[in-house]
């Protein structure tokens, strides 16, 4: 266990965390603004990967696939919010069950449309291979994932802190009733957030598709990890999602490398610890 080992493991953990951030930030925002436990979030991730594949097969362009997939799934999310979730009003239980129903529908639809093959998104050649620094092989794609998550995180942060819509969102997270009271159209905010969440998850799906693959069942495989991030980081907080992603990415990586026997405990133990000490998560507010 030399320094090289620790460095490469830390790097791997951070890059995995970067991917988790794309997935979990949307989940966290949806939770914060709408108080919805969205069990269809993994489906958005998977659909993103599939739509991207279709774009790549028809146009051959990976670059084009990213926005097309993310926007397509954002529209799906938007419609789902407008047509189905909104009419329910605030009712956590029925909303969560509705998202479960959609998760099943999406899963079957994806199987019917794209088949059951284990597929893979091939990134452009420039992102393949690895950079060698002092004998450390750093895969370019992992560096790209970190960069991508950093960019998206920064954009989200700027949106939240510096724009009008960001202020409206923050107000809604803090106190939806009060926000309505001062004239914020919280229904609009919710719609925007749900679509944004779907957008981010699908983006994660495209980026992650080259790294995790695209296959039926990925939706439910990735979902618990996203929830671990949100629970640790704090529900509804962007900073929380970022910190949570890093913690989970690193805990998962080092846990598996150092204590392979109990690898899931290293993922769930921090979660339980946080639940016991601060049920709202590190950065969540009551």
């Amino acid at each position: 266990m030399d320094a090289q080992f620790w460095l490469i493991q830390a790097f791997n953990g951070i890059s995995y965390g970067a991917l988790l951030f794309l997935l979990a930030s949307g989940l966290s925002l949806i939770f914060g603004v709408m108080r919805i436990v969205n069990l269809a979030h993994g489906s958005f991730f998977l659909l993103g990967g599939y739509v991207a594949l279709t774009v790549i097969w028809t146009t051959g362009s990976w670059l084009l696939a990213i926005p097309v997939a993310a926007l397509t799934v954002a529209v799906v999310g938007l419609l789902m919010e407008r047509i189905f979730l909104r009419p329910l009003g605030f009712d956590p239980l029925r909303q969560v069950l509705l998202t479960v129903g959609f998760a099943y529908l999406f899963q079957q639809a994806a199987l019917d449309i794209w088949g059951g093959d284990n597929l893979d998104i091939t990134p452009p050649d420039i992102l393949k291979g690895s950079i060698v620094i002092e004998g450390l092989h750093l895969p370019v794609y992992r560096i790209f994932m970190i960069g991508m998550a950093g960019t998206i995180g920064l954009a989200l942060w700027v949106t939240m802190e510096k724009t009008r819509i960001g202020a409206m969102i923050r107000a809604t997270v803090d106190d939806a009733q009060m926000a309505r009271g001062v004239g914020i159209d919280t229904s609009r905010v919710s719609m925007f957030i749900f679509a944004l969440g779907a957008f981010l998850a699908a983006l994660g799906g495209v980026i992650g598709g080259a790294f995790l693959g695209v296959y039926p069942g990925l939706d439910f495989a990735i979902l618990p990890i996203a929830f671990a991030v949100v629970i640790i980081g704090g529900m509804g907080s962007l900073t929380g999602a970022a910190v949570g992603s890093l913690i989970v990415g690193l805990a998962d990586n080092f846990g598996k490398a150092l204590f392979p026997e109990v690898s899931y405990f290293t993922l769930y133990a921090p979660m339980v610890l946080i639940l016991a000490l601060k049920p709202t998560g590190l950065f969540g507010r009551e």
């Binding site: 493991q9 791997n12 953990g13 990586n253 846990g255 392979p260 899931y264």
Partner: peptide, 17 residues
């Protein structure tokens, strides 16, 4: 002998070991 759990798709933790 290295044993990643069934369904592992990120081998980042294992390859360096």
């Amino acid at each position: 002998k290295i044993w990643p759990p069934l369904g592992t798709i990120d081998f980042g933790p294992y390859i360096p070991t």
